[in-house]
Design a protein around this nucleic acid. Structure first.
Lengths: 141, 141
DNA sequence: GGTAGATGCTTTATCCACTCAAGCATCATG
DNA sequence: CATGATGCTTGAGTGGATAAAGCATCTACC
């Protein structure tokens, strides 16, 4: 199952709409990743490597165990999408760097992940602002 | 990693807001599931069993292989959250039924999945309508 | 300066989700 | 009744995720 969300008995129309939207987003993300020979997790990690990052940093951002990141990075590394280099100041630490191949692949992935773009394109500029504002407000930010 | 989504280089503020929202939703769903001793996939399946359903039906809804559903249901069954009974008209088919324990657990899960409710509660009724409308429109529906 | 504990990452074991290929039972059709 | 389609399960294999243990290095303190 690509999608963690499920049909909670959404009591209001707004809740249902939220659910459907999240569901569609997740499926589209997964699909775009698979189209490029990536898993969702791999695409997600690749996307965070616009600049070099440490393992700890990645693990914290993803909210998962460091050993999990170790494995995901290892798989990406065997495909030359990513390189591990020892940190400059602390030899325990690793700097994860996206290779050119990794950057290209990620750019392709992003290009093909049309969901967000196409969702946006359904809305007028004013509606886009409204949506962004409402989502932020709903998030309490 | 609980969250399939990643920080696509969202070009617009609306895209960023969408991403953050989906990310938060997914994390909250996963967290609520774990709190009840469920995985996200299990919670998702349990949620679809308000009424009895066949395996094929579930697999189609989830967009995954039937054998995957077989396994998820098997795990739920060993915990007595679900029961498998042979279909009335076709003895090959199975009707999956939530047990009382399953229904109770799912109700608890749903109750504790406060994300959607709390997101909604940040908005006025008019804003809720607006959001629902915008999300539907963004989905092209 | 050397030891103790903290930190950064990896390894190993284990579980679950997921897919694919086979297989079994049953149904529907000729 | 045989043939093929359908509904589900089994088995093998991959990957994501956690937990526990380990290794290397750094930091602080005596």
């Amino acid at each position: 199952m690509a999608v963690p969300s499920g049909p909670v008995a959404a009591s209001t129309e707004a809740e249902r709409a939220m659910f459907d939207f999240v569901d569609a987003y997740d499926r589209a993300y997964e699909t775009a990743a698979v189209r490029h020979g990536l898993t969702a997790a791999q695409a997600c990690v690749l996307g965070r490597l616009a600049d070099p990052r440490g393992m700890r940093e990645l693990a914290d951002e993803l909210g998962c165990d460091a050993s999990n990141v170790t494995q995901i990075i290892a798989r990406l590394e065997t495909r030359d999408l990513v390189r591990r280099r020892t940190g400059p100041h602390d030899r325990r630490s690793r700097q994860i760097v996206r290779t050119p191949a990794g950057s290209t692949l990620y750019a392709d992935f992003e290009e093909s992940f049309a969901f967000a773009r196409s969702a946006i394109s359904q809305l007028s500029p004013a509606e886009q602002d409204q949506l962004a504002t409402l989502l932020r407000k709903a998030l309490g930010r």
